[in-house]
Design a protein around this nucleic acid. Structure first.
Lengths: 208, 208, 208, 208
DNA sequence: TATGAATGAGCGTTCATTCAT
DNA sequence: CATGAATGAACGCTCATTCAT
C-alpha cells in the first residue's frame, strides 16, 4: 500500500508538470522534488523516463473507455445517454488536461519512440473512438443519427468538437461551452435549417 | 536570391523534421545535414534554435490569413466561397502538416517561451479564426448560416472539423474526407434530420 | 569531509593548469580529468567555469592578509618581522605561482567580467597592500624607514620587488634572490652610497 | 605603401582590443571591423590569429631596445641619461599599455605556444634588460651605482619599479609617480638613512 | 528500500579559417 | 587584392542514469 501510494505521488507529480511542458523538457529532478522522493527512487518504480511518462499518459485512459462502453441507455433515452458520455469524456480530459494538452499533438507520434509507444497511443485512441462509436451506433439504430456515416467517423467528429470546446473556446461565452450547445451543433450543424425543431431531448438538465 | 534560397532550404529541412518530432527533440545537426549546409550556417540565418522553429511555424501563416480575408464571394455563391476557403486552409495545413501537428498541441504554450512566443501563436490563431469568421459572417447575412452563434465560435468549430479530418480521419474512407462531406457535417450536423434537402450547392465539383 | 576533499582536488587541478595557461584556454575536460572526476561533477561544486577560476584565485588569499596583519613585532625586532612577512608572502605566491602568474596581468581587468570580479580582485589586492603597509608603518615609527612616503606606496614597491625576484630573477644568481638581498635593495636602493645629498641631478625638469 | 598602411590599421585595431582583453577572448571579427577591413583580409597580412597578436606584441619593441642601447651619456650626466631612459621606457609601455598589461603576465608563457613564442618573448625581454643594464653599467663605472650587483639584476629591479609605478600606483599621489621619485627610491631605497652599516639584522639566517 | 552524489554522452553555440566571387 | 558567406571542430553546460551507502 505504501508502495502504491509512493508510485501515485510520482505519477501525480509528473502529470502536473506535463500540463505545462513537453515531456522532453521536464527534468526528472523536478519530478522527484515535486513528488518528495529521491531521484533514484523513480527508477524503483519506472524503468526509465519514457516509461514514467508513458504510464502517466495511459493510466486512467482504459478505465474511461471501459466506462463508456460499459454503460448502456437501456434505463434512459439516447439523448441523455449521449450527453452523459460527453460529460464523462470531458471530465476525464479536463482532469488530465495537463497531460492531454501535451498529448493531443502527439497522437500521431507520441514520444517518437520508434513506434512502440506510438502504437500504444493509437490503440488507446482507437479504443476510445470505438467506445464512443458504440454509443453513437445506438443513436443510429434509434433513428436519431444519420446512418449514412460510419459510427467511428461520427465519433471522431464528436471528439473533435469536444476538443474544440476544451481548447479553442476556452474564452468564448459560457453558453457556447455547454454540453447542450455542443450536442446541438453536433446533431444539426451550423446551417440555418428552418427545420430546426430544436430537439427537446437535449435541453433539459445540464450536467457540467 | 541565393541567400533566400538557402534560408528556405533550412526552413524546409526544419519543417520536415518537425513533422515527426517535437522541436526539443530535434538536433540542429540533423537540420543542417538535411538542409545540406554546415551547422554554423544556421546561425547566419537564425538567431538561435528557438528563432528557427519560430520562423518555421509562422512563415506562410500570415499569407494564409490575408488570403482568406482578402477574397470575397461577390463573384460566386457563398457555398463555393466557403468551400474554397476550406480548401485553402486544408492545403496550407496539409503542406505544413509536419509543423502543425506538432503545433496544435502547443497552442496554449508554444515553446513554453515565457509567453512571448505563446502570445505570438495565440495572436496568429486568432487572426485565422477572425478571417474564417469573416467568411462565415457572410453566410449568416445571406441566411445560410444560423445567426444565433457568433462567427468566431462557428469558425472554431469549422477549423476543428478540418483538423479532425486531417488528423483523425486519415485512415477513413475517402468519401468522408472530401470537403463536401466536411461542409455537409458542418452545416447540418450528425442528426438524422428528415429535413435534409441536401444542399445542392455543396455537391457539385470536388476541389481536393 | 569527503566532499571538501573532492572540491579541493578540483581546485588544485584547476590551479595547476592555470599555472601554464590563461583560464580561457583551459578546457573543463582537462580540469575534470586531472582532478580525476567526471566533468559533470565540476558543476556540483562550482556554478560555472568562471566561478571555478574565481575560487582558485582567491582561496587562501584572505588567510595571507589576515596572517600578515595579525602578526606583530612585539616579541622581535622590526627587521626580523619584516623579513618574516616577506617570506610569508613569497611562500604564498610561490605555492600559487601558477595562478598568480596568470593573475598579475589581470590585475586591472581580471576575467574582464564586467567589473564584479575586477572589483573583487582590486579589493583583495588593496587588502594585501594595507596589510603590508601596516607592517611598514611600524618601521617608520621605529625610525628604520623613511617617513616621507606613505606606507601603502612603500608597500607597493616592496611587493613589486618581491615580484621582480619571483619572475624576473628566476635565473639570476641565488645570492640575488635571498630575502636579505631584496630587503637590502628595498632599504638602501641601488645607489653607491655617498648619497643623501638628494641628487640635484634628479630634481630638475620632469619629463612625463 | 597602401599595403603597409592597411597592415598598420589592422595592428592598431588589434592592439587597442588587446588593451582590454586577453587575446584568446578577442574575435577576429572585431579586429576586422575595427580596422575597417574584411575578415578575410586579415589572412592576407598575417598567417593566423597567433601571428597577428605576435606582431602586435613585438612591433616597436625592438626599436625601443635599440633606442636605449644607442643613446650614450657622453654629452650629458649619467643622472640625466638615466632619467631619459626611464622616460623612454615609460612612454613606450604607456602607449602600448593596452598590450603589455596583458603581456606582463604572460612573460613566462606567452601564448602558451609550445615554446616558440615564449622563447621569442623571453629573448625580447632579455634584450630590454640588457639595454637597460648597459645604461646602468655606466652608472657603476662612474661610481654612482653600487657595483656589487650585476647590471642586469639592477635593471630588473628598475624595470620592476617602473612597472609598480605604472600599475600599482596609478591612484597614488602624483608626487610618488614622478620619475624623480622612482629614481630616488631606486637609488636610495626605503631606509631612513643612518644606514650602510649593512644592517646586521638582515644578514643572519635565511628563511626561504 | 531509498537516496543523491557522481557520471559522461550529447547538444547548442561560437569562431578561426577557407574560398568562391 | 578584397571580401564575407560558409564551414565544422571545439567547448561549456545539461541531465538521464547508475551505484555506493
Amino acid at each position: 500500500m505504501k508502495r502504491e501510494e509512493k508510485k501515485a505521488r510520482i505519477l501525480s507529480a509528473a502529470e502536473s508538470l506535463m500540463a505545462a511542458r513537453h515531456w522532453s523538457e521536464i527534468k526528472l529532478d523536478e519530478v522527484a522534488e515535486r513528488a518528495g522522493v529521491g531521484k533514484g527512487t523513480l527508477y524503483l518504480y519506472f524503468r526509465d523516463k519514457k516509461d514514467l511518462f508513458f504510464q502517466v499518459v495511459f493510466s486512467g485512459f482504459d478505465a474511461l473507455c471501459s466506462g463508456i462502453a460499459g454503460h448502456s441507455c437501456e434505463d434512459t433515452t439516447f439523448a441523455v445517454y449521449l450527453r452523459e458520455t460527453c460529460a464523462e469524456i470531458s471530465t476525464f480530459f479536463a482532469n488530465r488536461r495537463a497531460v492531454f494538452q501535451s498529448m493531443q499533438n502527439e497522437e500521431a507520434r507520441i514520444f517518437e519512440c520508434g513506434g512502440r509507444l506510438q502504437e500504444a497511443w493509437l490503440q488507446h485512441r482507437r479504443r476510445l473512438v470505438d467506445a464512443v462509436g458504440g454509443v453513437l451506433e445506438l443513436g443510429q439504430q434509434q433513428g436519431v443519427l444519420r446512418d449514412d456515416v460510419p459510427p467511428p467517423v461520427l465519433a471522431n467528429f464528436l471528439l473533435g468538437m469536444l476538443r474544440t470546446r476544451a481548447r479553442d473556446l476556452a474564452d468564448a461565452d459560457p453558453s457556447y461551452r455547454s454540453h447542450d450547445f455542443i450536442l446541438e451543433m453536433f446533431l444539426h450543424g451550423a446551417g440555418s435549417g428552418q427545420r430546426r425543431k430544436r430537439d427537446q431531448a437535449f435541453s433539459n438538465q445540464a450536467i457540467s
